[in-house]
Amino acid sequence: MTPRGGALAVLALAAALAAGLLAGPADLAPGDVLATLTAPGDAPPLARAVVWDLRIPRILVAGLVGAALSGAGVVTQGFFRNPMAGPGVLGLSACGALAATAGIALGGDAAGPMATPALAALGVATGLIALLGFARPGSGPATLLLAGIALSALASALSTLVLALSTEQWDLARRVLAWLMGSFESRSYEHVLLGVLPVALGLVAAAGIRGDLDVLVLGHEPAASLGVHPRTTALVTVAAVALLVGAATAMAGVIGFVGLIVPHLVRLRVGPRHGPLLAHAVLWGAAAMVAVDTIARAATLVPLPPGVATSLAGAPLFLWMLRRSARGWVT
């Protein structure tokens, strides 16, 4: 990481976190927020609730989710040797959504607040293993992309089937939808605690294979001749992506495009080495997620689901990247 680039990323994250703390639908003056932060005991209970119970957990969850998805994107793009790969494009989020939808339909969410999150993580891991089975790591980007599309379509169809089989349950559709749109609402320190460990583990795992991902640019077999253990790398990739996407999906539901766009844009800036790439993507991803959520919350009276906001911003960006990508990545 170049010191200046790193400092910029840290500054961006700090600015996003500050904006997330200061802005919100409750008209709290910045001075009040600061006073509540420094002396919570003396603050009026409502201001304390807004700052300490709503805004701080919210920006922490948003930051963790952004960092996790971007980190997962770096690993996915590196392992599949494709700058357009991402947890969403590969159908992994759809798999998480399927597992969660099925769980909610079968009444699994009544088992505890963390049942749906756990199922989502399991779905993501299963989806990734299926993808590795269909599109072997060495196969071309087109195979990978098509396998991802097929997986995504299959998972979505099964999710719809689950919903169709339970149309008489109106509130089921509502709960599933709320989950599919992604949300940082009503997130507590419990969610932060739930997410922090898997995200940290996932990022450590990703950092551990950063050198192997660098070498994978040469192709999977040439990388093997340079000492990259194919199965171990694949397993660590599965574990890291499942931990990161699973934790993110568990904390906030389905958030699209962050894992694809952020690593891709960061790659344009810092180059293909996965060490700096991972560090920058994690910082920028956290900053972007907090910023998107803060803007969505401050700009509209009706809370815009963050998953919708990221897709609204991400899908056009993705098309733009497709257009400007000089090398045909679908061969």
């Binding site: 040797r81 192709g219 000492g227």
Partner: peptide, 18 residues
């Protein structure tokens, strides 16, 4: 092993510029 034996494969499907 990779510190003992170096390999130059026939094809190198390089996936990114540097």
């Amino acid at each position: 092993r990779a510190r003992r034996v170096g390999v130059l494969p026939q094809r190198l499907p390089l996936s990114d510029d540097m």
